[in-house]
Nucleic acid binder design. Sequence first.
DNA 1: CATTGCTGTGTAAGCGTTTACGCATCTATT
DNA 2: AATAGATGCGTAAACGCTTACACAGCAATG
Lengths: 344, 344
Amino acid sequence: MTIEEFARKIGVSSATVSRAIHGRGRISPQTRQMVLQRMEEMGFTPNLHAQSLAHRRSRTIGLEYLGQTEVLSDMFLIALARGIQRVLTEHSYNLLLNPVGVTTEKESLLRRWARSRAVDGAIVVGNPDVPVQWLQKLVAQKAFCVVIVHHPPPPMANVGCVTLDLSRGIAQVAELLCSLGHRQVGYIGSIPGDPVLDMLQAEMEKRCGSIPAEYIVHVGETPDRGAQGAYTLFRHNPRPTAVFVRTDVLAIGAMRAIREMGFCIPRDVSVIAHDDVPLAQFTDPPLTTVRVDYEQLGKSAVEMLLAMLERREPVSLSQTVHTSLVQRATVAPPLHHTLSLRED
Amino acid sequence: MTIEEFARKIGVSSATVSRAIHGRGRISPQTRQMVLQRMEEMGFTPNLHAQSLAHRRSRTIGLEYLGQTEVLSDMFLIALARGIQRVLTEHSYNLLLNPVGVTTEKESLLRRWARSRAVDGAIVVGNPDVPVQWLQKLVAQKAFCVVIVHHPPPPMANVGCVTLDLSRGIAQVAELLCSLGHRQVGYIGSIPGDPVLDMLQAEMEKRCGSIPAEYIVHVGETPDRGAQGAYTLFRHNPRPTAVFVRTDVLAIGAMRAIREMGFCIPRDVSVIAHDDVPLAQFTDPPLTTVRVDYEQLGKSAVEMLLAMLERREPVSLSQTVHTSLVQRATVAPPLHHTLSLRED
DNA sequence: CATTGCTGTGTAAGCGTTTACGCATCTATT
DNA sequence: AATAGATGCGTAAACGCTTACACAGCAATG
């Protein structure tokens, strides 16, 4: 059923129906009410493409995610997508998915979408090399907006950026460990040069002294590597009384190793990890870890994008999402310590 | 840039450009080549909404997933989505996401999409009560198709159905266990009445005898419950030499418990699970489990949908995806047995 | 050489909306 | 009572594509 047919049937013109739908323009409240009610009854829904064509906006945004098929990134992605969806549906926008870094011949799908006006804007996540060249042009000439998640922004107008700042959570880790009295703290990371280690060192320094080099290992990504990291770490004497593990996945292996060496978590060794993947609440004991709120990351990104699209207040083009420690059951004071949770 | 402007600039009519783009209608090869080349150069891309309006098809399908926010379903979903995307992009279709069971006021988003022609068809996954009433109408009067994943299909025209058949994988479990010589097999499930248990019983029966009631426990969903299940199971004498655990997540806990009871996997006890979540390859030892190919499930669904949409061969409206055992390192012959892998 | 049939291209009428504009009515002002 | 401004509604021209139809050119046929 087209709007013309429908309008005729209920005895008004298509313009009136349109005005009723959008609540804009001059229309009497009674007529509007009547039209809306009959729409409901007769089940008329305007054609979306005709609307988009006339409005020159599609109320649809694209999500380009560089889909590494790694074990973990998927989990992050889905949380992120959930956040995006939440906000989007509140504003009755739609989401078009950009399949895993796919390109149509010669040009990226995102570019094609932008030029064919399939989407009004886009969120790009985890793509380290955003193609600034064509984005520049696109963004300049048309009403196209982008917000980049989790990667340093090329500073342009109409290109926003929301980044993840891990320092808050790391500070909380340092705070907890130091205040409990841990002075031998180990670090199991995946690769050298990780900024998280620097943050941790800085925060530890402030409070109870930094981590010595021999308590630091870089081992890779899987639980097995985590176990291996724990073994090498615990060869040292004195052994660490607490260990920070860069990811939950590593921590799963590390905890297994620690137990196999005959230590009890958290009585003999405290473990504190990072990411808060779903499984973290089910380890034995449940893992104390730093939660990264990917859902919030997604929400912030969309909110920024929508603000840009709808030209509301002059938005800040950059925003930050922080992390926070969630305490479960793998951290306790070191054994020799009398239980003084706070030393203030 | 509109098609008119572009056509004028390169000295032809809009009709010619359109014919060049679609390669349909009467157009000389030379002209076509020329037009395509200049499109490339000048960066002209036709407006998608105008196209959809004119074609009365959007080349977009919707994905409605009933998003339980459970730990696991997300993993399945993302694999499924990946499969869907793969096929879709091959055919240059787009995917519109239906946020977690969201409804616009009064009507489901899916219905709204269908009526507003936002999507040509849809894939509905994991929604136990597909609203047959309106689907019926929609499907009848218009060219709208649906394929339902993983739930019994309401048999209608234009409504396909791809289901998951777990029996193959379960048969392989029984085959492996029996052929290795296991005769005391335990079962840790999550809820009573699970058809998987029935399948397993049937398959065991065929080969080396079914599982006695005292070797069957139903415990719930989390690793902790899995551990608990293992403890209760191993109170029996004689204890099971192998145990089938309904999900990997349960198995993680069960394996922990088994180890804590002093048994070695797989020397003393074989463990075999179901689902093959990503973490299954990282357990210690790596978990032998039944793989559910959700990606394939997604692919099949899309392929069926596209066939329906494009009215190709009279497709079968029902299809099945099977599971298969992936052997890793948690299964071995029972201790007392001489190593006879096959007793044929 | 007139006719036929085929090919390549342009013209214009859709596709289903939105919205600027104009025209009645209707109330409030002189 | 005549005029001005509001108000509610319909008409028609976009929006940017596709495609049926018409038409000119051209080769093949009688």
